[in-house]
Design a protein around this nucleic acid. Structure first.
Lengths: 235, 235
DNA sequence: TTATTGCTGATTGTTGACAAACTCAAACGT
DNA sequence: ACGTTTGAGTTTGTCAACAATCAGCAATAA
């Protein structure tokens, strides 16, 4: 299913970036377990490329936190504790809250004219999905909701960091612990964020976003303690 | 003066990381200007290492945002606009605010016993420096203040991202635009953050931190517009 | 004149080989 | 029995050479 996104004209794919996505996918899919060591020659062999190329890909993954590097000893798939998951939630919340505040500010300034319409449509569709309990659909809509706000913040760096965090958090979904979700609850929270952004109130948007992420972590903890292992969307 | 910081015990230095810091220093010091292209063979020659090694270093720098990469065309020192500087301030503010809230929470929970003492001492020293107008000393104290709070947040990922942002923002200090500073003002703001953290009020700490960074950007803009080019600390 | 095509030199992408460092376990000495 | 040392084997770090791609310019055609 996952065609590589056609890169926008500017930057073609290089072999190393291709290998990078491939390893990334292996980690997310669980083909490489947490704590497992990545052997450069083995990977190079199975992928049919040279060791240097694999090496470059691994270095890149290490820089974005998916992999731990120890000099002269190798690369290991990042093992993560519950405390670290909390840390990721915190950072993600901080970035998202900032983005929502920024988006609200821009809406108040008359920029981002169509944002409100697009958010409205997203929420409407989501309400329809709530009753059908179609988690896959909800998952996509949830990502879209967050993405639109990040986009509206007009802060490329923030978006890059956020996307990276999301990618990393994906990991823990496949690793036994599902990410918490309650469509009805997170829909309410999305509504609160929406209202704040719509009214152009940065401060309120920020608080609503923070609350949303914090509650999301709470739900995650709940499910983690209950030992649930379903594959759901986060919210 | 600028010795390279001794890397923390755990991870030994490899040649590539050494080259990385060296290039980093060249960029910060202005030996490599914004927009300038980095030629791999030239760099390898001047540094006396192989091309593959500088390649690895360049890739790493690109991942942390100091350098722009274009496939098959090369690496360029990141040119940055005023809007992007604002973006960096925003992200930095978001992370810092989150850290302060977290620190306040932990203080309220009885953890971080000595944090308050250390912050108190930092502020006292700073007040002494205020009158002498010793900017170098203030600069160090300012970094220490922020570092202590990031540390107290007990969030390694947040600290890593924050440190990276700071490093990047260093760039624009050497590039004509100084980073804004007014010791007396930022001392007041530090005081507000301190009080909030001390009272264990996460929300107030967060707001104070946000305000601090925002005002810092305001001062930066002020100086930028005035065309000032001194080398001062930010606050 | 202007746009297109085909060279040429230079630079990046990729590879395989060599050198250095590490792991593990057996041999050794106390 | 226990800690230390030594050595073989494996894995990573570094390097130099080969292949692919790009920027710039000259020649050609409309």
């Amino acid at each position: 299913m996952s065609k590589t996104l056609p890169s926008i004209g500017a930057r073609r794919e290089t072999l190393a970036t291709e290998v990078r996505s491939q390893i990334e996918e292996m980690i997310v899919a669980g083909a490489l377990e947490a704590g497992q060591k990545l052997n450069e020659v083995t990977l190079a062999g199975t992928m049919g490329v040279s060791r240097g190329t694999v090496r470059e890909a691994i270095r890149s993954l290490a820089d974005s936190g998916l992999i731990d590097l120890i000099a002269n000893r190798g690369a290991y798939v990042n093992e993560i504790s519950l405390a670290e998951i909390h840390n990721l939630y915190e950072v993600r919340g901080a970035i998202f809250a900032m983005a929502c505040a920024s988006a609200a500010q821009r809406v108040g300034d008359g920029l981002e004219a169509d944002l409100i319409d697009r958010l409205t449509e997203n929420l409407d569709t989501m309400r329809g999905v709530r009753d059908t309990d179609d988690r896959a659909a909800y998952y996509e809509l949830n990502i879209e909701f967050h993405d639109m706000l990040l986009q509206a913040a007009a802060n490329a760096r923030a978006k890059a960091i956020y996307d990276n965090l999301i990618k990393e958090m994906h990991l823990y979904r496949r690793r036994g612990l599902s990410v918490a979700n309650n469509i009805a609850l997170s829909l309410d929270e999305h509504g609160a964020i929406f209202e704040a952004v719509k009214s152009g109130d940065p401060r309120r948007a920020r608080d609503a976003a923070f609350a949303h992420i914090e509650k999301g972590f709470g739900r995650y903890m709940q499910i983690a303690e209950d030992g649930n292992a379903g594959d759901t969307a986060d919210g």
